[in-house]
Design a binder for these strands. Sequence first.
DNA 1: AGGCATGATTGGAG
DNA 2: CTCCAATCATGCCT
Length: 200
Amino acid sequence: MEHMVGMIHGKFTAIQRQLKQSTCEAVMTLRSRLLDARRKRRNFSKQATEVLNEYFYSHLSNPYPSEETKEELARKGGITVSQVSNWFGNKRIRYKKNTGKFQEEATMYTEKTSTATKVRGSGGQSSCQSTPSPGSCGPFPLTSGGDMVLTLRTLAFLQPPPGGVCLQPPTHSSWQRATAPQPPSSPAGDSGSFNSDVSN
DNA sequence: AGGCATGATTGGAG
DNA sequence: CTCCAATCATGCCT
């Protein structure tokens, strides 16, 4: 009996120590990663930039994505929601500051989205849960499987800014903050909100 | 090395 | 709380 108790006790302490160690390790890892994110800036993947730009330029009149939209954009781009918020914040500021510089980009993406918005049928709001995606209908698998294969490589540079198209700088010098730009048409299944960390 | 582009952080305002 | 504006720090190109 005494032997058993001693053995169990020893095992228990060993496991305890192991657990402590692994926990500490995990915490350290998380912490370092967080700290890393602060200082170490890595450019977003092409896909993320594409997705964000498409949304931004197709909603230039009101580039304030709702929480759900942010989530979806984040998932599509393989980034976090806060990163989406950061990006939109930076983008708004920088776009306003230097509208002319973004004209090429703007036309590029607006054209791209306009060609892709064929699905936008009646009702104004597409009931389809998959948001208007560029190129074709549904290039993004949306399976959240971490298989972030860069599918839309092809439409990276569809066409240069067409000369001749008069790009009048939009006079919306300041966006009016309209609350709830998009009706909360939440896609029922919000599962698999797993942030697959493809980077690193 | 320098300059620019860009993501992240911070502080103030609503 | 979110957003804006300024700023910092890094990545990338020359």
